[in-house]
Design a protein around this nucleic acid. Sequence first.
DNA 1: CCAGTTTGCTTCGAATCCGAAGCAACATCG
DNA 2: CGATGTTGCTTCGGATTCGAAGCAAACTGG
Lengths: 167, 167
Amino acid sequence: MTSRTPLDPTELSAYFALIEVSSLLRHAVEQQLRDAGDLSYVQFQLLARLGDAPGGSHRMTDLADGVVYSRSGLTYQAGLLEQAGLVTRASSPADERSVTVTITDAGRARLTAVFPGHIELLRSLLFAPLSEGDVAALDGVLARVRDHMRAAPPRSAGRRRKDAPSA
Amino acid sequence: MTSRTPLDPTELSAYFALIEVSSLLRHAVEQQLRDAGDLSYVQFQLLARLGDAPGGSHRMTDLADGVVYSRSGLTYQAGLLEQAGLVTRASSPADERSVTVTITDAGRARLTAVFPGHIELLRSLLFAPLSEGDVAALDGVLARVRDHMRAAPPRSAGRRRKDAPSA
DNA sequence: CCAGTTTGCTTCGAATCCGAAGCAACATCG
DNA sequence: CGATGTTGCTTCGGATTCGAAGCAAACTGG
């Protein structure tokens, strides 16, 4: 019960295009962010998420899940951001073991510093060749896929010793 | 002349969805490949490209460009693949300084070993929630974007000292 | 309330990644 | 042909990444 149908050409093509586009986009964005505000891609994503959040804060775990990052990796990045004064870390009052990360004013300033260039890059690189309808279609399809992916596998949480891996 | 239009909601949503989907997909695939054939994602991509190539071989630079990887990173990965006996490296006769990487039978065997699981994963994770039309639309739009991206910036080549960076 | 489990985060070690610098083989131009 | 680039790859050093292991707080059943 492995693979009866070998994936038709259009599927293959779409898959490759997806990987290629995201790779190219990622590299370009990475460079822009580095130049404009000395931020890595993950750091930008983290700040952006915090900036959007109600109190400007999130738990470590939620951030890791959100940006699809390992927990240890997030600890490292949070450390860097804290050193740079862009976020603060504090254990939450309700749950002593969870750490709440909060964006600082400097963090918000950094965001506004890199945003214009970021937008500009997306325009010229990603959206330039697309019509309004294309964008809507892309958004619709990808949102559906994302929801589907987020549903089943708890990604990044990585079950612990308990629930045996079926084997 | 930076960013007059702040990117409409659909564009933002599509962008986020693209990043999120590719991240989730990448992680899932990475794990599958590791389990099924002890390959990293890049290694798989490299083998796949070589497997498709006419003589089963490519130049280092073309591979690097193809998978959007740094040249030094590719040197490292090629070394690993060579050690594992999945590819061979030889300087090409025509141009003494360029190195031609060729997939071995063991390399092809490894590919066929991981392929079924790979396909299966793509089916269940990426294509499951999509109709035939969705896939076609996705492919069309992304292919257009990819071509656009590949056109302008020579990515990964990184100009050398010559052509001054405008500044 | 106490053992056993789970959850949230960090530390640790090893692997990977990239850019800068270096080196050798081509190419161009006088 | 010699000087001056240019191209293709590798080495080097440092930064980043992840998984496994560790630790403490919270939850669970008895």
